[in-house]
Simulated scan of single mutants.
Amino acid sequence: MMTQVSVSSIFNVLHFFPIGIVVGIISALLGIGGGLLYVPALSAIGASPIQSVATSLVAITFGAISGTIQNWQMNLLKIEAVLLLTFPAMLTTEIGVGIANALPSKWLLLSFAGLQITAIWLINLKTQLQQENKKAVKIDLSQSNVNSTPILKTQGIGLIAGVLSGLFGVGGGIVMVPLQVLLLKMPIKQAVQTSYGAIILISLWAVSHYVIADSTNVLIIPGLMLGLGSLVGANFGARLLPKLSDHLVRFLFTYLLIFLAGYMSFKAFIL
């Protein structure tokens, strides 16, 4: 069982900022949620599996807040839809946190590796749905309001997202976006905007449960530095993305996640 470590024994806290920049660049280039990268990064520099998951939730909140503020300023944020996802997720987040705390470190890492492999399919599905949306006849977004949203399906998506967020330290967007498009027939941009808004409360709620369970599992300052760094990196990555071919992006995306899944599995077997 890997012993828990303090911030000072992991790394000088200032070093988390450039790590966050790298994560932000990769996330923007490959369309990968920060949680899929923060957890391996924290694990690599000495955090325990449970610390990596809990601290990742602190970091991903920054990206969600930034995206939500932009959507709010552009009047693209549908509060009702966000709340329909958020409240069910808050009910199941504690389940994910409980499972993460109960699982042996080895199985938590192996489960996360499984999530990374699943993410290859989910994010490729998201890309496919995005392409189909572009080809389809444009939808009058004024008709895509909460009154026409199947409430039970939306809440079901929230329930799933809550468990994943608490268990793996991801925001839940990895499943919320494709499921909203598939089940709710929501335009993908609106699905992303809604997901961003929901991630803020879901992540903060999950962090609070980790703090209640054991405050040493949440490395607040490293998480803040990672989050701030990722905001800087994401801006750079977004500018670099148009210069890369789609083939190269897909190649890097697929093999990076396969590599990270292999790394997390390796870490699990040497515990």
Rank of each mutant, 00 (worst) to 15 (best):
N217W: 15
K189L: 10
I221K: 04
A261Q: 01
L226F: 10
S203L: 09
G67H: 13
F253A: 02
Y210M: 03
K153M: 15
A213W: 01
S195H: 11
F16T: 05
K189A: 09
V22L: 13
V7Y: 10
L179P: 00
T93P: 00
N217T: 14
L110H: 07
Q131H: 14
E80C: 03
Y255S: 04
S8E: 13
L240G: 08
L103S: 05
L224G: 00
T92P: 02
G229V: 03
K153G: 14
V137D: 10
S48Y: 06
I258P: 05
A47I: 07
F266E: 03
L271D: 15
S27L: 07
E80G: 12
G20F: 03
G172V: 05
M90Y: 07
A136S: 10
I60E: 11
G35E: 04
S8Y: 12
L260M: 06
N75P: 01
V13K: 09
G262L: 11
G31L: 04
F269T: 14
G46P: 04
L122Y: 05
F17N: 07
S230A: 13
S9T: 11
W205L: 05
G156P: 00
N133V: 03
A206S: 12
V232R: 01
H209V: 00
S48K: 02
P150A: 08
V58E: 01
N75R: 15
L84V: 10
V192E: 03
L14N: 09
L122E: 03
I220F: 11
S245Q: 15
I200Y: 10
F259N: 02
P242G: 10
G262P: 08
T86I: 09
A28R: 15
K106H: 11
L91T: 12
L240Y: 15
S27A: 15
F16N: 08
I188L: 02
V5D: 00
T3W: 09
L110T: 12
A238E: 10
M74V: 12
F168C: 00
W72G: 10
S111F: 05
L219G: 03
T68Q: 10
H247Y: 13
G162N: 03
I95E: 02
Q128D: 12
Y196F: 13
I25G: 03
A89L: 01
F251L: 14
I212F: 11
V170N: 06
L241N: 13
T55A: 09
L57V: 15
I79G: 12
I270S: 11
A198R: 08
V58T: 04
S208G: 05
G223Y: 00
G173K: 11
K78M: 15
K138P: 01
I200Q: 04
L252E: 01
A44G: 04
Q155Y: 09
L152N: 07
F168Q: 00
V22I: 14
Y38D: 02
G96M: 06
L152G: 12
S6D: 07
L256E: 00
L226E: 13
S56N: 02
L91D: 04
S27W: 05
L184F: 11
L179A: 15
I157S: 06
M74L: 15
A119I: 05
F11S: 14
P104T: 04
A59N: 07
A47W: 00
L152P: 05
L110V: 09
S195D: 08
L83P: 00
F259M: 13
L37V: 08
I270C: 02
L164V: 06
S165R: 03
N75F: 14
A198H: 02
L29T: 01
P178L: 12
G229C: 05
L204Y: 06
W72C: 10
